[in-house]
């Protein structure tokens, strides 16, 4: 848990998360809980910036799977940005990227979500 932390900010009603470190244990569930909290406030446009994520294992994949599901249940929109190839390959293989928009840069995702109104 010491190896994982989350920074978040909002731009024009868009929630941007920047998780940092290792997404490899139940401590990373905090990201899912943070998403739920914004969803409960009707903030349904979410960006997750992967640039500071070092490692994702199956437990981490499970947590992202949960986030995808929750945003879908709230008819929200989810974007992933700044993904390392190793992460995008795994997420593609798991079918997670079918349910999210993937962008190279955070600003691209923010622009996309702004325009989606």
């Amino acid at each position: 848990m010491d190896n994982f932390s989350i920074l978040s900010k909002t731009i024009n009603g868009i929630v941007i998360f920047m998780p940092k470190g290792y997404v490899n244990d139940l401590g990373a569930e905090n990201l899912e809980h943070a998403c739920e909290e914004f969803l409960s406030k009707e903030m349904k446009k979410v960006v997750i910036n992967f640039s500071e994520i070092q490692y994702i294992n199956s437990i981490g994949a499970s947590i992202f799977t949960g986030i995808v599901q929750k945003i879908a249940e709230h008819d929200g929109m989810l974007c992933f940005t700044n993904m390392k190839k190793v992460h995008s390959d795994v997420f593609e293989m798991l079918g997670i990227t079918r349910h999210v928009k993937v962008f190279k840069e955070e600003k691209d995702a923010v622009n996309f979500l702004k325009e989606s109104d």
Partner: peptide
Amino acid sequence: DLGQEVTSTKSFNERMKTALYVITGMFSV
């Protein structure tokens, strides 16, 4: 990961929860 989790010193319930997360992560459930 699963092998490590089920043999860890965590409580039984925590080990089982983590094991379930490993499966759900492996198969995106």
